[in-house]
């Protein structure tokens, strides 16, 4: 039986009816049409479905939508301010941190969580923060560089 839940996603409040066996990934993609959240494995191995849930980056494929009832969620669609990219997004664009782009939303959200807690992350801290987000294209180097540059730009 479907249940009514309330999610605050990217500062908008949504009330939706979901069956208990719907994941948060499904609710975001299918009910809210927020398709930037990707599913790469469905079991928490790849991080493509990363969203920020009540301040922490998590695999949305391993969360029931009903479990997220009442939560505040940031998806990739909520990172930019309208047409103005977030400094992290700017850095990803400028410094070649994107190839196929399938891991990019998750990477950006994990990185965003990091630099909100740690304004001067070291390379190792960045790599640790991104270690749950797999990327098969870039070898990570330009992603790590972009996060570092963004963290510096944000202090200016």
């Amino acid at each position: 039986m479907k249940q009514i839940i309330t999610l605050t996603v990217n500062k908008e409040i949504y009330e939706i009816a979901v069956a208990p066996n719907r994941t948060l990934t499904q609710a975001l993609r299918e009910d809210l049409n927020l398709l930037g959240t990707k599913e790469g494995c469905g079991i928490g191995d790849c991080g493509a479905c990363t969203v920020i849930l009540d301040g922490r980056p998590v695999n949305s494929c391993l969360i029931l939508a009903v479990q997220a009832n009442g939560s505040e969620i940031t998806t990739i669609e909520g990172v930019a301010n309208g047409r103005d990219l977030h400094p992290l997004q700017e850095a990803f664009v400028e410094h070649g941190a994107i190839q196929c782009g399938f891991c990019t939303p998750g990477m950006v959200l994990s990185a965003k969580s990091l630099i909100e807690k740690n304004q001067n992350p070291t390379e190792l801290e960045i790599r640790e923060a991104l270690s749950g987000n797999l990327c098969r294209c870039t070898g990570y180097q330009k992603i790590v560089e972009a996060v570092k540059i963004a963290s510096e730009n944000m202090k200016k």
Binding site: R29, L34, L35, G36, T37, K38, E39, T75, I76, E77, V79, A80, L85, Q89, F92, V93, E94, G96, I98, G101, F102, T104, P105, V108
Partner: peptide
Amino acid sequence: SRVPRVDARAKVTGDARYTAD
């Protein structure tokens, strides 16, 4: 040169549509 990719903005904002989307 090092101009950014044509698809970078679409991909970094979640706008880029893949087949499953």
